[in-house]
């Protein structure tokens, strides 16, 4: 069983090839946050169909002939879960754990993970895509939006790194 990670440059080439295949077969790139949106929209549509019909946001995705769960990204992210699991099994990394810097408690790590998720979820919708959907895919297709997203995401993370350093180092 090998447990170490792959050479990052080789992993990068493979990631690029996966992205290229997405372009070659489906004419579109990878993404992640869009799947969360689809599932969330579908869930809200089940709970409160009237609300979704009246909302400018939800009505873009639900209604006559629209199936939010039959979205490309939903199936792609199901694949990501399977692929991640296979890789974890292959490299002996499957176990239930909360990974955190030893200097902080597991509870603190979870609170921050949840907060980060909320921010990222909101930001990904405002910015029309996350690191995969907008930054990576956008850069590959040389889209201006991709480069703007990439610089905004990484620039902000660098700028704020100092303030949350206790969580990581």
């Amino acid at each position: 069983m090998k447990t170490s990670y792959m050479n990052p440059y080789l992993a990068g080439v493979l990631l690029g090839l996966v992205l290229l295949m997405a372009f070659f077969f489906s004419g579109r790139g990878l993404g992640a946050s869009g799947a969360v949106k689809s599932v969330m929209v579908a869930a809200v549509d089940i709970v409160a169909p009237e609300h979704t019909a009246n909302s400018h946001f939800y009505s873009k995705y639900v209604g006559e002939g629209k199936e939010p769960m039959e979205a490309w990204l939903v199936f792609e992210m199901m694949g990501v879960l399977v692929g991640g699991f296979l890789s974890g099994a292959f490299s002996g990394r499957l176990n239930w754990r909360i990974e955190h810097f030893p200097g902080i408690t597991a509870k603190r790590r979870l609170v921050f993970a949840g907060m980060g998720g909320i921010l990222f979820g909101f930001g990904s919708q405002l910015g029309r895509g996350c690191t995969s959907g907008s930054a990576l895919t956008g850069m590959a297709s040389l889209s201006v939006a991709g480069f703007v997203s990439m610089m905004a995401i990484f620039g902000t993370a660098f700028a704020l790194a100092f303030f949350v350093r206790k969580n990581w180092i």
């Binding site: 992640a32 946050s33 969360v36 921050f112 993970a113 949840g114 907060m115 980060g116 998720g117 909320i118 921010l119 990222f120 979820g121 909101f122 930001g123 990904s124 919708q125 405002l126 910015g127 029309r128 996350c130 690191t131 995969s132 703007v148 997203s149 990439m150 610089m151 905004a152 995401i153 990484f154 620039g155 902000t156 993370a157 700028a159 704020l160 790194a161 949350v164 969580n167 990581w168």
Partner: peptide, 16 residues
Amino acid sequence: GGIIMGAGFIVGGFCP
């Protein structure tokens, strides 16, 4: 959106 995502990245340690 990117700024908010950047904050989420460093706080939460992941992207989607």
